[in-house]
Write a protein that binds this DNA or RNA. Sequence first.
RNA 1: GGAGGUUUGGCUGAGUUGGUCGAAAGCACCGGUUUUGAAAACCGGCGAGGGUAACACCUCCCAGGGUUCGAAUCCCUGAGCCUCCA
Length: 414
Amino acid sequence: MIDLKLLQKDFEGVKKALLRRGVDEKLIEELKIKNEKLKEAKMAYETLQAAQNAMSKEFGIYKREGKDISELKKRVDENKRKIADALEVQRQRQEELEKLAMSIPNLPDPDVPDGEDEEDNVEIKKVLEPREFDFTPKEHWELAEQNRWIDFERGVKIASSRFSVVYDMGARLERALINFMLDYNRKRGFIEVSVPHIVNRRALEGTGQLPKFEEDLYKIENQELFLIPTAEVPLTNLFSDEILQEEMLPLKMTGFTACFRKEAGAAGRDTRGIIRQHQFPKVELVCITKPEESDKVFDEMVETASGILTELGLPHRLVQLCTGDLGFSAAKTVDLEVWLPGQNTYREISSVSNTRDFQARRAKIRYKDGKKNTLVHTLNGSSLAVGRTMVAIMENYQNEDGSITIPKALEPYM
RNA sequence: GGAGGUUUGGCUGAGUUGGUCGAAAGCACCGGUUUUGAAAACCGGCGAGGGUAACACCUCCCAGGGUUCGAAUCCCUGAGCCUCCA
């Protein structure tokens, strides 16, 4: 959630930032008005409540002294009715404000480039040169089928479209990658955490997937529980509603989970292969930091994800997302895109975001900053999407006969 | 699935004949005295959110309802944890 105090204090500044990422101007103004209306209602209610409290105290004194209370009681009863009305007004306005505020995305950092969509993202740098092929490189689904690593039909048979089954060397490669990635992250100071794959509504609100993106989540029937779309949700919410000790920060975590997404709105995109599945394995990084150190940690996370690709010998590039392509909770995001020779293009394989205090405010994650309690910054990034890494290995390490060489870095894991 | 217990501030833990309880005490933490320095000792401060220029004031003792002029304390519903039984 954005900072409503800041909105009140620097309306023009906040408006400008939100307009950059395409938020409707009317919504921003409405947010401000609703906030002011709530304040009014609160004041009215609190004044009445204060009177009530005072009278109640008096009441006790009267009784003790044996005075007549009938007159006082009349006043109190009357006030009580007013309070009930005032409270109802306040409740309504609170609800309205919250509904709106929860649907407003984060403010982009000032240095995020303006832009409409991914076309306007800015390449930061390329790492490793794509290999020259003396034959026409195949796409991963061809290689996967030829090597009998991935079975697309049977995944569909037992579940639905966008599910697949991985066999033999493919399955072993997947497992090797997960271990390799977790170990790599651990060596860089991220502690390994194993979390539930199902979370409640509160957690999803904390990280910003709800209330806005419910249609993309798998919900457990008749329960307020959902399959996680990313490990970011359980990892970040681990410390919701807590006041952390300063020494605990920065908290750097890594975890492996499956991720579940309905991919609503992605109909027709990436239908072949395993680029876009309803269930996919991913190793995630989540950091909780003091505000002043989040930029540094952000860079570490990008380097870590990039480092894994480099170790695996996979050419990739870093791309800074423009305002139009930023995720809902992110103030700043750098994507890692891996080179896919079969598709002859770079494809997203990791996304590292700094949400600043946006999630921390929703999830109430704070730390003791000397005397004060201050909202932390939360960051998340994949390191990496395992399925897409397999795709990249297949395509980059393919031989002319369709066989695939296992990257050196993975040899100890296979 | 059944019976009982429990849920209080960063932690431990008092507080159930309803009022002066946002809550004793201890630990932790912060400031000071003392010390070459540290420890110990002593003095003072110290829950959270909102509100204010600062006060005042409002809300919060698992969550949600209710009774009452007034609830951490009474009633109902739900959740977590623990124990016993099936």
